[in-house]
Simulated scan of single mutants.
Amino acid sequence: MTSSNTTLAQAVLTFAEQHVALHQERNNNELPSTEFDEQWLSPCISEKLADDLCSWQPIAIAKLVEQKEIAKPLSFNNVEQALDLVLHQDIKTYFTTIFSDSIEAQCADGSLTLLFAWSEADFERLQENIIGHIMMKQRLKQAETVFFAVTDEEDIIISLDNETGEVWAERVGCKPHKKIADSLADLFTNVLTVS
C-alpha cells in the first residue's frame, strides 16, 4: 500500500471513529443504531436492541482479517476482470478499509451520505452496482466514474473519476458537473460527520 493509500485508509478510519464519538457524545454514550435484519447480518452489529433495531459501529476490515473473522482482504479483482479495467486505487482503498452503515456528512458543497459495505455479502452487491454503473458510463461514452456517496438531491451522486482520482458531483446518467475535491484524501480533510 502506497503512503497516499495509507493516508486515505487512516482518514476513513478516523472519520468513522469521529462519527461514533460524536454520536455517543450527543446520545448518552450510546452507539448509533440501525434497522436489524436477520438476513443481513454484519460484523458491525454490537447488540440487538429490539426486534427491528440494533446498535452498530464501523469496524476495520484489516482487523477482521487479522482475527480471521473473514478469510482474506476484500478485493476488486473480479470487477476489474469483468470490465477489463483497472479501478483507481483510492476507490479500492475507500471501500476495503471498513465495514459500516452509511454515514451522514457535511462538506463545503452541502450534505452527503457516505456509502460503505455493511458486510462481505453487501460488498458483493456493491461490486455488482459498480459494474452496472461503469457499464452505463461506457455505453453513454462518458469517462468512467465510481460512486461512493449520495446527496440530498435524489439524482445527484458523488463519484470518483477513475482516471484522475478527482471527486465530482454528477447526475445519474450524465457527465460529472461539479468538482468537489482533488482526491478522496482531500475530501476527508474537509468533510465532517453530522451524527
Rank of each mutant, 00 (worst) to 15 (best):
A50E: 13
A50L: 14
L53H: 01
C54P: 00
S55D: 02
I59H: 03
I61Q: 00
A62Q: 14
V65P: 06
V65S: 10
Q67S: 03
K68L: 13
E69F: 02
E69T: 06
K72W: 12
P73Y: 10
P73G: 15
L74N: 04
S75L: 09
S75Y: 08
S75C: 11
N78V: 04
V79P: 01
E80I: 11
Q81C: 05
Q81H: 08
A82N: 10
A82M: 14
L85Q: 05
Q89S: 15
D90F: 00
D90Q: 11
D90N: 05
K92T: 14
K92S: 06
T93Q: 13
Y94W: 07
S102W: 01
I103F: 01
Q106K: 11
A108R: 02
D109S: 11
G110Y: 02
G110Q: 06
L112S: 00
F116Y: 04
A117R: 08
S119L: 07
E120H: 10
A121I: 11
E124G: 03
Q127D: 06
E128V: 09
H133V: 04
I134H: 09
I134A: 10
M136Q: 11
M136V: 09
Q138H: 03
Q138F: 05
Q138D: 07
R139Q: 15
L140Q: 13
K141C: 07
Q142W: 03
E144H: 07
E144T: 07
F147S: 13
A149D: 05
A149F: 09
T151P: 00
E153P: 01
D155Q: 12
I157K: 02
I157M: 06
S159W: 03
S159I: 06
L160Y: 01
L160F: 10
D161A: 08
E163L: 15
G165H: 05
G165C: 07
V167W: 05
